[in-house]
């Protein structure tokens, strides 16, 4: 199967861009290139990753300024045309600020920057970002953020749940949704969501840091494998048409 091309956007202050690049290229064996935030062309990418970090120093609000980078116009256009976009950590914050995902990420309820492994339960495995997982599967993946407290108003939250847009929730090691397993105070233990169309995804934990057992966990592979499978299926479908 031919490799798919991923684009990893680099904002001033991104610091997980090389991890994402490594995960996609060396672990998953795909084609990948960096996309500088001032570029206005996605370089023929089949999928876009907005990596973690502290774009623009987190000034004003996390992700608020990155959203206006020249490349984001193209990312929004790509997403609106059905392209797969995945944001991790600061990338998730940027997608919310850009209006590509609903809600916002507030300061952690504890007020502390939380940097540790957490457990995630796969809630909806019918998405382009989770199809390689089984429903209820528990992943161990690290978080590293000060503003990961997912918030939206009640009606938007109900809609999010009704449409099964919650992909991952924080849970205990055995998959129970407990307040203790929620590292940041997120509503309904939400760790990752997709948009209504299912092509834009954001999560606070870092799958790109969980790609090799040597480094603690390779549970992040499933997320990238899912995207690759989704891209392959789409390719096959378009050939058949």
């Amino acid at each position: 199967m031919a490799a798919h091309r991923f684009g990893v956007v680099v904002f001033p202050g991104s610091n997980c861009d090389h991890d994402a690049y490594h995960a996609v290229k060396h672990v998953m064996g795909q084609d990948v290139r960096f996309l500088w935030h001032k570029e206005s062309d996605l370089g023929g990418a089949d999928a876009i990753i907005l990596p973690g970090g502290f774009s623009y120093g987190d000034y004003l609000r996390c992700g608020a300024i990155a959203r206006f980078s020249p490349i984001m116009k193209e990312v929004v256009r790509f997403a609106n045309a059905g392209g797969h976009v995945m944001g991790v950590c600061n990338g998730f914050q940027i997608l919310c600020e850009a209006g590509l995902l609903p809600g916002a990420l507030l300061r952690n309820a504890s007020l502390r920057f939380v940097c540790r492994e957490v457990h995630l339960r796969a809630e909806n495995t019918d998405t382009a970002f989770s199809n390689a997982l089984t429903a209820g599967q528990v992943l161990t993946i690290p978080v590293a953020h000060g503003e990961g407290n997912y918030y939206t108003d009640r009606s938007a939250l109900e809609e999010l749940e009704a449409r099964r847009q919650v992909v991952f929730r924080y849970c205990s090691a055995d998959g129970a949704l407990t307040p203790e397993s929620n590292p940041n105070g997120s509503l309904n233990n939400i760790a990752g969501i997709v948009n209504r169309a299912g092509n834009v995804f954001g999560m606070m934990p870092h799958p790109e840091r969980s790609m090799e057992t040597l480094l603690g966990s390779d549970d992040g592979i499933g997320v990238f494998q899912s995207v690759i499978q989704a891209l392959s299926r789409r390719e096959t479908a378009s050939v058949e048409v």
Partner: peptide, 8 residues
């Protein structure tokens, strides 16, 4: 557009 986030 920027200074405030309408969500929060």
């Amino acid at each position: 557009k920027l200074l405030a986030n309408p969500v929060m």
